Simulated assay, not measured.
Amino acid sequence: MTLSPTPRALLFDVFGTCVNWRKTVVSTLHAQAHESLNAATKSLASRLRMRVSDMTMDHWGQFAQQWRECYKTSTRDHAHDPSQPWVSVDDIHLTSLKHLIAKWDIEGLWDAEEIIFLSLVWHRLEPWEDSAIGVELLNQLFATCTLSNGNLSLLSDLRTHSGILFTHLFSAEEFGTYKPSSKVYLGAVNKLGIQPNQCVMVAAHLGDLKAAKSNGLQAIYVERPGEEDWGTGEVERARQDGWVDLWVGLGEGSKGFITVAEKLGVGESLQA
């Protein structure tokens, strides 16, 4: 065990930390675009057909990243100004998808019903390979809880789709704001009925962990490909400063959440 005091609950960021949103979203955008191009019942303008036909997986990757940035901006703005009207992540995803369709000049590729279905791809994200088994291992010693900006219906669908069997689902929706607001971190702690330092935030984003740490939680960093917003220098300084209680990087035989379970003594506890 490397954490002190011994934690009772692990709180997990979800997008990027538990699920590989980029892979699922990009492949779905690409597939749905080609389904529309090949649909006998659709009458697409020649200019639109040519434009979409020229879009590669890299283009859809850029589209997906912009979609993700729209979500980040909207939730961050609300966290800093809670007087703004509440908007769920599902609504943010739908509104920003419509905006990007216009920005990329591909209006007409999907009808209104198809756009709504596509906006809900965030309910169907695939997990990282270690996520389900890692959480299953951690469930043997700890409460495992989502602590995500995603709304509760989204998180419930993700738990079913991914097979990651969290013991609790906590959403920023329950606290009327978004991370990195203190209300989210401390709201989850209060629902568990324990002290902040008995909870550990697990995330692939140092900004999320920094906010959790400032509210008295412990912090575990699990690096995921392409997920960190901080620059290389900032990441290295964070590692050297030592405020992250457990750092699980890429490489060196790392197995993500399985490594977290090993570091937290799950196997040792079961053998004892």
Rank of each mutant, 00 (worst) to 15 (best):
H168V: 00
M201F: 07
A219C: 14
H78S: 01
S119M: 12
H78R: 13
L209H: 09
K213D: 03
E227C: 05
L152P: 03
K42T: 11
P225L: 07
Y185G: 01
A172N: 08
Y185R: 02
L158E: 02
R224S: 00
L100H: 11
G231N: 12
L206P: 04
K213W: 15
G150H: 04
K183C: 03
G253S: 07
A211T: 08
K213R: 15
Q66V: 06
H78T: 13
N38Q: 13
G176N: 11
W60G: 00
V121R: 07
L158I: 01
S269A: 14
P5W: 04
Q218L: 05
R8K: 15
P180N: 02
E173S: 06
S131A: 14
K103Q: 10
H99A: 09
V26E: 05
V135F: 14
V121T: 15
D90E: 15
S254Q: 10
E173G: 02
H30Q: 09
P196Q: 05
A45G: 15
M201T: 00
N215L: 06
L147G: 02
L94E: 09
I115M: 14
A188I: 02
N151A: 06
A31Y: 10
L169C: 08
T28E: 11
A204E: 04
E262H: 15
D157C: 13
T232L: 10
S214P: 13
Q140Y: 06
A172D: 03
V222A: 01
L154M: 14
F117A: 09
H59T: 14
G193R: 06
M201I: 09
L137D: 00
G231S: 10
W230Y: 13
M50H: 11
V189N: 02
V135R: 07
L209Q: 05
T41L: 05
S46T: 14
V87P: 00
T56V: 11
P127Y: 05
G226P: 10
Q198D: 11
V202N: 01
I106T: 12
Q195Y: 10
L141K: 13
D77S: 11
G216R: 15
W86I: 11
D13A: 05
A64Y: 12
D111W: 06
S269H: 10
N151F: 15
S153I: 03
S74D: 08
A40S: 14
Q84W: 08
F257D: 00
V14S: 03
I92P: 02
T17Y: 03
R51E: 05
G163S: 04
L158M: 01
L250K: 09
T28H: 09
M1F: 08
S162W: 05
S153Y: 08
